[in-house]
């Protein structure tokens, strides 16, 4: 069974992001970039499926600038067998990413596409659903447990009310939630080995995909900042403040 894993290069989750000098975009100069945490979980799940003898090949794919090769190498070090960079210089939206992934899917014919449920920069939570829609296949979003069966896959999903388990026909697109697994760290020998693994570069034009944006970012701003309030001395003062100052309890 072949697994395609889509990964995104994003600002590391520990970085405190700011608007750039003219507030037209996020300041991305000299900030640490990483694999989107949800995508790391997707890679880990693919590697576990390979370790269980269910998956035979793992292909990591990203759509982005040439710098995204760095994140693909990370995926190779974590256990992907080969990688594909679909190179573009413009920031691509989920719709365009899904179209590129569809083109790669058609060439590779994987049984499962694993991806993150959301990228922690755009927080869109769209790409997997869009890809499944374009492929006309089933989707298992926000997965906290997956188990592959003959021709189908059972996916437990984290939903607002609790957990829901679906049975999906293969091929299917699975998007990962945080509790699906805990990703491993790449070992030094594996990081060295990853340098030798194949990494192909394609372009959106070559794949016949129109990636021109449908939306325009007009600006970014900081949200209204909350001021720190006061420290109360004890529980009695806290209750008094909540009753008589904030008037939120009676």
């Amino acid at each position: 069974m072949k697994i395609l894993v889509a990964v995104k290069r994003v600002v590391d989750y520990n970085v405190k992001v700011r608007p750039n000098s003219d507030s037209s975009d996020v300041e991305l100069a000299n900030v640490k970039m990483s694999v989107n945490p949800f995508c790391e979980i997707a890679v880990e799940e693919a590697v576990r499926l390979k370790e269980k003898g269910i998956a035979t090949e793992i292909i990591a794919v990203t759509i982005g600038t040439v710098q995204s090769q760095e994140q693909l190498r990370t995926c190779l070090a974590l256990g992907a067998d080969r990688a594909i960079l679909v190179e573009t210089d413009i920031p691509v939206e989920p719709l365009a990413v899904a179209k590129c992934l569809k083109a790669v899917y058609e060439e590779e014919q994987p049984d499962i596409v694993l991806m993150g449920k959301q990228a922690i920069d755009g927080d869109n939570n769209q790409t997997g659903q869009m890809l499944a829609s374009m492929l006309g296949c089933a989707q298992g979003t926000f997965a906290s447990e997956v188990s592959v069966e003959e021709g189908s896959i059972a996916v437990t999903r984290e939903i607002d009310g609790g957990l829901q388990t679906l049975s999906l026909k293969l091929p299917a697109v699975i998007t990962t939630d945080l509790r699906l697994n805990e990703p491993r760290y790449a070992s030094l020998p594996n990081i060295m080995k990853a340098k030798q693994k194949p990494l192909a570069t394609r372009s959106a034009e070559e794949l016949g995909v129109d990636v021109s944006p449908r939306t325009q970012l007009l600006g970014v701003e900081l949200p209204a900042q909350r001021q720190a309030g006061i420290k109360v001395n004890d529980v009695a003062q806290l209750v008094d403040k909540l009753k008589n100052e904030a008037k939120v309890i009676s």
Partner: peptide, 19 residues
């Protein structure tokens, strides 16, 4: 909600629009 997050991007792709 998680229901709409699951469904709406799929609708957008069917209509070929960016959600």
């Amino acid at each position: 909600t998680t229901t709409a997050k699951n469904i709406m991007p799929r609708v957008a792709a069917l209509l070929d629009v960016q959600a």
